[in-house]
Design a protein around this nucleic acid. Sequence first.
DNA 1: GTCTATACAACGATAGAC
DNA 2: GTCTATCGTTGTATAGAC
Lengths: 233, 233
Amino acid sequence: MNLREFEQQVAVSTEAICREIYESRASSVRIKKEKLAVKNLVKIFNATLTLANQKGFHAMSLRDLCAECGMSLGGMYAYFKNKEELLTLIQEQGRAIVERVMSGQLTGIEAPDEALEIAIRSHLYLSEVLQPWFFFSYMETRFFHVAEGKRAIAGELQTEAIFGDILKRGVDAGAFSISDPLLVAAAIKALLQDWYLKRWKYRRRKISVEAYAAFVISMIRAYGAGKFEGGSS
Amino acid sequence: MNLREFEQQVAVSTEAICREIYESRASSVRIKKEKLAVKNLVKIFNATLTLANQKGFHAMSLRDLCAECGMSLGGMYAYFKNKEELLTLIQEQGRAIVERVMSGQLTGIEAPDEALEIAIRSHLYLSEVLQPWFFFSYMETRFFHVAEGKRAIAGELQTEAIFGDILKRGVDAGAFSISDPLLVAAAIKALLQDWYLKRWKYRRRKISVEAYAAFVISMIRAYGAGKFEGGSS
DNA sequence: GTCTATACAACGATAGAC
DNA sequence: GTCTATCGTTGTATAGAC
């Protein structure tokens, strides 16, 4: 599968995400007209990602934010009760999307070899489509582990567990020959994160997502997970 | 080489670093007694790393900071002229250390295979000793590329270039068989960064630096860089 | 529903006593 | 050299006009 096919299949848009957020908490939002509310949420979210990914969420002032999306300060407060709620709103949504898309792509796939490739490709393509979201989520989540460390750690380990499970299944089935599935799962995750954290670098080198996906897959296969011939199914 | 041997050989201490910083800019620091100045700089730097790695540099107030290191707000301003100077001071020093240690460890090493292993181990051990520094540098540097993107990008690519050069040398010498040295170099860097960015994870799993180093090395070797037997020299 | 105006707290930074 | 006290600014958040 390539990026284009993935996009058509999953169809994750900012608007769809915002509508979902709105519906899931319509009670606590002052605005009652769904169409209007969603339109403004899209503006707010996009502006937040743009500004926060430039200077950091905390450094971004709400004055900056409402200027960026052409609203007034008071008007914006109809959509969240304080700045922190805006943060958690975006973060939780990001996590929910990852979970849904990943499990959706993987249902019904039995062969560990195939599952591994699909999981890697899906995650890369998803982070390609929603790069600002992934970048934001990664950067702002970091500040939590040290202080609290609950859902943030869970989020980090969630994706990793997907890969860990596939690898263990492959080892049990005799398809893979790796001695440390957990370490390999961690390595896969690190490689996937590099893609969306340093997209500027890969873009500058004109490396496509598909090429990067093929590279990661071949690297893991070379280490012992799957056929050495590699595949580009 | 293991961590202990590395520590004895390089001897990078916070104090040595702070003395160096002090000397390099003694003119712009109000304090004239070196011993005192260095002692306070150590306190300030350690406190900054602690607090900034918890909540982010921008979210850390200077009041928090001076409380943490037992000084007064006014007293602290003798050591830097504003908050941003404190940031760049720490960042630039971090980069300088990496450059010095890495090139020091690699001088005189000819065999690409050996150089690759030493480079990986040195970087991991260094980031183990100065983990807060690395974490801080990574996190706070990120906010620059998008906005400006000068020294920050250079810093990111500097370490990567070390690995890229070794890999290319190995390919030219016929020791490695990899088609994309730049991608492999990027992957190595991503794996090294994962170590200091998520040390909590690896600590929880009781994975030592040495074990992680051996894993990374064997992974790269399996992909085509060096002997498949692996080595733990 | 969205705006302007404003309250109030917290911040970085400085001046001047000791 | 370090402290306390304070200035001016900027931030989040709310109240009330439209």
